[in-house]
Design a protein around this nucleic acid. Structure first.
Lengths: 302, 302
DNA sequence: TACTTTACTTGCGTAAAACGCTATATAAGT
DNA sequence: ACTTATATAGCGTTTTACGCAAGTAAAGTA
């Protein structure tokens, strides 16, 4: 019997719901189920009565809950007393886009720095689209990413903020401007196929844009596929085409003067931006604490 | 942190000796060492001060010992309270020779039966020499065996009794008897090479006998190699040769009238008979409890 | 009645943790 | 100097725990 099992049991005894407890503990449902089973094996008695629809505490379960609370409290008290509660130290590896590094991560890290000065942050920047891959590949602990349509179950996603996805065009007088100038781009019948597009090479925003085109039967003229929204905005500002990017990136680029948003008949869905991590990694108190600080910083219930 | 770690720590805090605790807990020294290390990691503080020669409790260690005692007591109290302390139930698999089954095991099982009526005993009998192999192969949990010269470290041996290893010859008038009759077999220069021997095919007693012959430069005439001391005694009683067997087996054979011991210049070392099991298996409360009962039955400190 | 939803359990392959063995280090006894 | 006693560290193996996917069963819905 270990303290981890106690925590799991207490959570389930509290929520009376294996799935919800799993989420809260960053564990799969089956892990929760088996942890309880192991406890019951060890005690030789069922602690929870469950009938595929509801969960109730047995009387042994109620008794065990009392014990578990006491025992866990004593353990934690001891940890604190022994000076420990080990000031968290170690290394957390982050991956994000350049924009996210100072528009999303900076406020988080600022407060994290204060509460956990001994933790070293390793930050890697690059195309936001690569974030999920790097998490799955174990190269980084946490990535800032848009919420993908399909989230692998061993991943956990903590939404922090939303940013509208915007079409944008160069403001300068140029060939691209001419195709748009004076026309009603918001009209359903606007001829998008005449416009050179600069689109993301891969990732969540590429998927969203592809879907948008497909739903409208538009076969866009792709001028360039680019890795990274920052680069898209830069290319748009140079007059090479019309692009899309989260408003956040446009604002942060310092190029908002050279780029202007285009009205469209039906806007792209806003991009949900947040943290992404392997559930497993979230078991680490280090990673978990950064995750928690992020949630608090953005006022999200974790 | 789990209860197992607490037990290990308490044992070490008590003995102040990793090796001895390892033995008592049926764990290797390194397992004990690392269990303590893990605890210290988790608490962020050394609990034991150790300098290759002595072990002392640190002040954190003393505090932790208090906690560990309390916590473990509460846990065990709860287990008892929940009706459990699960009346041990399950299955223990034993291997032994026919003789051992009623001369060694019977008194153990008698008292084990009383204290653990719900445990099923699976007994397999055969050549005593195979016992250790069957334990190593995982076919049985516990074997009754002679103590081998080299005991694999993952095995644990609990000596229960000793029995002298005896040379024996048929009492009936026969060719074999003629070779011995009237001669002084105890004389150092007795001609053993004229005697047909019936020897164990393999196992501890074969090794002992081989060594005995080798040390005296005797090249015995082997009439038969036989699996099982019982069979050796039977063959001897039929007048086929001179054999060796533990006195225990001769006594139990019912053939002691047809077989008589032979004096020799230097006797074979007595055979230490006891239980043998994989350390790992001894972690199972079932196996451990049988082991303990055996120790008590024979008045051996376990 | 049949489909869908919800929620726990189970089989299976994989990943992490724990263990034992061997080797190593260090101090004490001979 | 050699042996003994004791703890630790590297390494391969075993055991345990986990996530996923499939299964099951009750309750809601059409």
């Amino acid at each position: 019997m270990d303290t981890r099992a106690l925590s799991v049991f207490l959570s389930v005894a509290d929520t009376l719901n294996f799935s919800r407890s799993g989420e809260m503990l960053h564990l799969s449902v089956s892990a929760v189920s088996r942890t309880v089973q192991r406890l019951e094996d060890e005690l030789g008695q069922p602690l929870l009565e469950r009938d595929n629809r509801s969960v109730r505490l047995t009387s042994a379960g109620r008794e065990f809950r009392e014990y578990a609370r006491r025992s866990l409290a004593e353990w934690q008290q001891l940890r604190r007393k022994l000076g420990t509660d080990a000031e968290l130290a170690g290394e957390v590896s982050l991956y994000c886009s350049v924009t996210a590094s100072y528009r999303v991560l900076a406020p988080i890290l600022e407060s994290f720095r204060q509460s956990h000065p001994a933790v070293e942050i390793m930050m890697h920047t690059g195309d936001q689209a690569d974030g999920i891959g790097r998490i799955l590949g174990g190269q980084d602990d946490i990535a800032v990413s848009g919420h993908p349509a399909q989230l692998a179950r061993r991943l956990d996603f903590l939404p922090l903020l939303e940013s509208p996805l915007e079409f944008c065009a160069p403001t300068a007088d140029c060939a691209v401007r001419d195709v748009i100038e004076g026309k009603n781009t918001a009209a359903p019948d606007f001829d998008w196929e005449a416009v050179p597009f600069i689109v993301p090479e891969r990732g969540v925003t590429k998927d969203i844009l592809d879907a948008w085109f497909r739903e409208r039967g538009i076969r866009p003229r792709i001028y360039a596929q680019v890795a990274g929204h920052e680069a898209i905005v830069a290319m748009v500002s140079l007059g090479l085409g019309v692009g899309i990017a989260p408003q956040l990136v446009i604002d942060a680029s310092g190029l908002s003067g050279s780029v202007s948003n285009i009205e469209v008949s039906e806007r792209l869905p806003p991009l949900s931006i947040g943290l992404c991590s392997l559930r497993r990694r979230l078991a680490s108190p280090l990673v978990k604490s950064l995750w928690d600080v992020a949630g608090q910083t953005y006022g999200v219930p974790v």
